[in-house]
Design a binder for these strands. Structure first.
Length: 399
RNA sequence: GGUGAGUUACUCAAGCGGCCAACGAGGGCAGACUGUAAAUCUGCUGACUAUGUCUUCGAAGGUUCGAAUCCUUCACUCACCA
């Protein structure tokens, strides 16, 4: 039992620091039911969660199954500083209202995955506001600039002569201090958080908390492009609140290679099952498309349910396999004689009439399933289906 | 504070008086091929009912028949020195 739990916990992890401690905690839980705490911090800078976040959340869920109590830390205070991780320039500072609003939407979405009864949501402003100048200064004495500059991104920026604000030095310190305050047993985060996560250990020792948190790091999930990390600003993400059909379609659009990565980090399948599928595909007994469909179904099911997942698949197959029209399209009404390019823009299929013209010239536009070749066409009264490319449809009523 | 370099479209990056809506690369979009995959090949990639017009090359002025290109001021970034 313990063995299995540990396997589930270490699955997909990039690195575990102080693995023995994790083993000890889990073993003790199965011996006498003693629980332990697992901390994970979220920066309420963006409001919507995407699959990248769920990698961590799912890992937390696994801990919850095996005696972990989750400390879901909303970094409302630290968000006012801005985590410098991975940034090549100083971050913008958010205002309090936005942060609070974001934190709220976060919480609503998080319990799609986490067990609410085993989760404690905490805000670090609770204790950081109280810390005061004196406490702050005391905190800064526990670390030195030389070591701070060892951190990758700081080092690069320092060498490149780019600005590093003093407040950015405080970020890791404060994140580490959170662990002191929460007396966390384990903290999990992405590999890019290593420095900050280790700071928690350092500070717990410095403050004589009586334990040093184990650190578990998850790999960073690549976005739809398969190269850069999934993030909202790069527009390569699948949001967990997106429509079933969008989640389904986006999942199918990832590359075969990336699909395995998603399987490993996101699916419930065991590693053996995944290895088997991989082999099947290699030997040609299993079509990669099928494997991908299953992944897409699993994801939609997780955030909605099986029925909607099946519907999403049917819808998708209709449109792209059978070449049928999607069931629900954006619908607009326009005046008679409208220029087709204008109609395309009005329907939201094209950003400008110029772009519409170009697409028509390239045979990318269809009217009632037939390619349009005349970019000066005007629509007479009636109902039309407009299509741009393979995936953009709209219904147009011309009066 | 001093000296020098720079600021070009989504990003990087050419252009240094007319041939510039601006080379090239990446990205994006579309077409072919497919499994709405990858790879590959091709086209497009400021706006406008459009062989023309308008707005764009950090900001504002100026020189000129004509400026992304020259001059002035301002803002910002970087480098070296203090």
């Amino acid at each position: 039992m313990v063995q299995q739990a540990l396997e589930e916990i270490s699955r997909g992890t990039a690195e575990i620091i102080d693995k023995e401690r994790v083993e000890k905690l889990v073993t003790r839980y199965y011996d006498d039911g003693t629980t332990y705490t697992v901390k994970a911090g979220f920066d309420p800078t963006g409001a919507d969660l995407h699959l990248g976040h769920t990698v961590l959340l799912q890992k937390l869920r696994v801990f919850q199954k095996h005696g972990g109590r989750v400390q879901l830390l909303i970094g409302d205070f630290t968000a006012t500083i801005g985590d410098p991780t991975g940034k090549s320039e100083t971050r913008k500072i958010l205002d309090t209202d936005t942060i609070l609003a974001n934190a709220k939407t976060y919480q609503e979405q998080v319990f799609n995955i986490l067990d609410e009864s085993k989760t404690e949501v905490v805000f670090n402003s609770t204790w950081l506001n109280k810390l005061g100048a004196a406490g702050m200064v005391a905190l800064t004495t526990l670390f030195n600039v030389a070591r701070m500059l060892e951190r990758d991104d700081f080092e690069k920026r320092y060498r490149a002569g780019q600005s590093i604000s003093i407040s950015e030095f405080l970020y890791p310190l404060l994140q580490g201090y959170d662990s002191v305050e929460l007396q966390s047993d384990i903290e999990i985060g992405g590999t890019d958080q290593k420095f900050n996560l280790l700071m928690g250990r350092h500070l717990q020792r410095a403050y004589n908390v009586g334990k040093e948190q184990a650190v578990l790091m998850m790999p960073i999930l690549e976005g739809l492009d398969g190269v850069q990390k999934m993030s909202k600003s790069l527009q390569n993400y699948i949001g967990i609140t997106e429509e079933p059909k969008d989640i389904y379609a986006k999942t199918l659009s990832i590359s075969d290679e990336l699909m395995w990565r998603y399987y490993e980090l996101l699916s419930e399948n065991t590693l053996e099952e995944i290895a088997q599928m991989k082999q099947g595909v290699q030997m040609g007994t299993l079509h990669p498309k099928t494997v991908k469909e299953n992944l897409a179904l699993e994801l939609v099911t997780r955030f909605y349910n099986v029925e909607l997942a099946t519907l999403a698949k049917e819808e998708f197959d209709n449109v792209f396999k059978e070449n049928l029209l999607p069931a629900d399209m954006n619908e607009i009404e326009v005046e008679e004689g409208i220029w087709i390019c204008k109609a395309l823009v009005d329907a939201g299929l094209e950003p400008s009439t110029s772009q519409a013209r170009r697409d028509i010239k390239q045979n990318a536009v269809s009217l009632n399933q037939e390619k349009v070749s005349d970019d000066a066409l005007n629509l007479s009264a009636g109902e039309y289906i407009l299509q741009v490319g393979k995936r953009k449809f709209a219904k147009v009523k011309v009066r």
